[in-house]
């Protein structure tokens, strides 16, 4: 933590350098933890552990990427956890038609909820927190209604489960491939496209953006639709990887996504953020779970899932406190 502290406290960093240093900070923390874990647990660096870890965490990384865009505009999307559940239920119902159908359907579910979020936020001028809170409740209810409060079995005859369980070249799990593609897409969108620049401009100074004639509403629209679409995709992974549509899954995932974004150094006030740091933040948070699982496996200490959550919460708090200090220092200048 010391290194992380020192790195993100460096004053007067340029934005680009700032972002890359955030990434650097998380990267150092990752390296330290990985080194520690690889020395302590034999199986930690095994192909099996790495791939399983990445495949499982791909779901969280996807919604983290969407959340990063939302937060860069100064907004929030609380609905993603419920949207994952809704999407998983819906795609389980259509799984017999194969992944070719299920994948677009799952994404469409997310695009639909994202569109509704965006309409409520931009047309009805409801703050994102409330608008997406309503969707969080609504989408969860929808998932329960469609599934009849039961997990929905997927078809094992079609190629649907191949997506969640299969591997490309017998090596990389498809969820990881998908996640890497989504990461590349989001990175390009932020760094190379006018859209990303507008996202940062609106989060940095909305009034100035309006005076410049930027399409503020259209940009916000895109951001919430993107967040929804990625949540929908995450839902496809869930149903396909676990063999069932799960109306009660995804509880609190939106908060994990926010945590990943925040750990990555993106400020909740908007205008600043990094896709790479968000990816690393999500991996860092996942890694802590992974290590606790190994610890349980060693039998030295036994952490229940409840304790894991407490430890993760404590970790998040430390990072956020450091960020707040950094913000205060910036204001003092």
């Amino acid at each position: 933590m010391n290194i992380l502290t020192r790195v993100i406290n460096l004053p007067g960093l340029k934005r680009k350098a700032h972002a890359s240093r955030q990434a650097e900070g998380v990267l150092i923390a990752l390296a330290v933890i990985t080194l520690f874990a690889s020395l302590r647990y034999d199986a930690f660096l095994s192909e099996y552990n790495i791939m399983t870890f990445l495949a499982y965490n791909s779901m969280f990384i996807l919604i983290g990427l969407g959340m990063c865009f939302v937060i860069m505009t100064g907004g929030i999307d609380l609905s993603v956890g419920s949207v994952v559940a809704l999407s998983s239920v819906v795609v389980a119902k259509v799984s017999e038609y194969g992944i070719e159908v299920a994948l677009p359907v799952g994404i469409l579910v997310g695009v639909t909820t994202g569109t509704i979020n965006a309409l409520v936020i931009t047309r009805l001028k409801i703050v994102p927190f409330i608008a997406t809170l309503a969707m969080m409740l609504g989408a969860r209810g929808m998932a329960l209604v469609i599934s009849g409060n039961q997990s929905v079995d997927v078809s094992w005859e079609s190629n649907f489960t191949q997506f969640g369980l299969g591997k490309m070249f017998d090596f990389i799990p498809w969820p990881v491939v998908t996640m890497l593609l989504a990461f590349a897409f989001c990175w390009l969108l932020l760094e190379k496209f006018a859209f990303g620049r507008h996202v940062l401009a609106i989060g940095g100074n909305e009034e100035a953006s309006k005076l410049m004639g930027l399409e503020v509403n259209r940009t916000l629209f895109g951001v919430y639709v993107l967040s929804g679409a990625l949540a929908g995709l995450s839902g496809v992974m869930l149903a396909s990887g676990f063999g069932a549509g799960q109306p009660l899954e995804g509880l609190g995932w939106e908060l994990s996504a926010i945590a990943a974004v925040v750990v990555g150094g993106t400020l909740l006030t908007g205008g600043l953020g990094s896709i790479t740091s968000t990816l690393l933040g999500a991996i860092l948070l996942g890694l802590i779970f992974n290590i606790l699982n190994f610890e349980n496996g060693l039998g030295t200490i036994s952490f229940s899932a409840y304790w894991q959550s407490i430890i993760r919460g404590g970790f998040l708090l430390v990072v956020v406190v450091i960020q707040a200090k950094m913000m205060n220092r910036k204001k003092a200048h």
Partner: peptide, 8 residues
């Protein structure tokens, strides 16, 4: 207030 985007 409505000119620069300070972070950019």
């Amino acid at each position: 207030e409505d000119g620069i985007i300070p972070q950019l």
